[in-house]
Amino acid sequence: MEQLSLCVRYVEESTEKIKEDFLQFVPITDVIGKGLADTILKALKNVGCFHARAVQWSTDSHKSVYLLAVYLHCSSHSFNLAVTNACSVQVI
């Protein structure tokens, strides 16, 4: 079974420094857009992560869960699409 590393990046209010913390490994069974996003949201809820103040959400599919967040297309997915389009090797 595949797993993903669930991490959060945030600004620590007392120092105003950007922090990034590993939360847990999350088993995944669906690696396509909505299924993966739902798995991540459920995992965040299970660890008590208050995500209503999220300012960025990045996946390979648009999911408007965070009304105040800026949506960014996943950079890894964008890079993979660019390489695939630029390369004649179908395996990529």
Rank of each mutant, 00 (worst) to 15 (best):
residue 51 H to L: 14
residue 52 A to S: 15
residue 23 L to Q: 13
residue 51 H to C: 15
residue 32 I to Q: 03
residue 46 N to Q: 12
residue 38 D to L: 12
residue 33 G to V: 01
residue 40 I to E: 00
residue 41 L to F: 13
residue 23 L to A: 14
residue 48 G to W: 03
residue 33 G to K: 00
residue 44 L to Q: 03
residue 49 C to K: 02
residue 37 A to E: 02
residue 31 V to S: 11
residue 37 A to I: 02
residue 29 T to G: 10
residue 32 I to H: 04
residue 36 L to S: 02
residue 48 G to C: 02
residue 41 L to V: 12
residue 60 D to H: 10
residue 64 S to I: 08
residue 50 F to D: 09
residue 60 D to V: 11
residue 41 L to P: 15
residue 46 N to R: 12
residue 38 D to N: 13
residue 36 L to E: 01
residue 62 H to I: 05
residue 25 F to W: 05
residue 27 P to T: 11
residue 37 A to T: 01
residue 25 F to A: 15
residue 41 L to K: 07
residue 57 W to P: 11
residue 32 I to S: 04
residue 56 Q to I: 12
residue 41 L to Q: 10
residue 35 G to Q: 02
residue 27 P to M: 04
residue 50 F to Y: 13
residue 37 A to N: 00
residue 60 D to P: 13
residue 54 A to Y: 03
residue 53 R to T: 08
residue 57 W to H: 12
residue 55 V to L: 11
residue 33 G to R: 00
residue 52 A to I: 12
residue 49 C to H: 04
residue 52 A to V: 15
residue 29 T to D: 07
residue 45 K to L: 06
residue 31 V to K: 09
residue 43 A to Q: 06
residue 56 Q to G: 13
residue 63 K to G: 13
residue 62 H to A: 05
residue 63 K to Y: 06
residue 38 D to H: 09
residue 30 D to G: 13
residue 54 A to H: 03
residue 42 K to Y: 09
residue 63 K to N: 11
residue 39 T to E: 02
residue 34 K to Q: 04
residue 57 W to I: 15
residue 46 N to S: 13
residue 23 L to N: 07
residue 44 L to C: 08
residue 46 N to D: 11
residue 40 I to W: 02
residue 40 I to Q: 03
residue 62 H to C: 06
residue 53 R to Y: 02
residue 59 T to N: 00
residue 60 D to Q: 11
residue 28 I to S: 01
residue 35 G to M: 04
residue 58 S to T: 15
residue 44 L to Y: 05
residue 23 L to V: 12
residue 44 L to P: 09
residue 41 L to E: 07
residue 56 Q to C: 11
residue 49 C to D: 04
residue 34 K to Y: 05
residue 53 R to N: 09
residue 46 N to T: 15
residue 24 Q to R: 11
residue 60 D to M: 10
residue 37 A to C: 05
residue 53 R to P: 08
residue 46 N to G: 14
residue 24 Q to A: 09
residue 31 V to G: 06
residue 39 T to P: 06
residue 63 K to E: 13
residue 52 A to N: 14
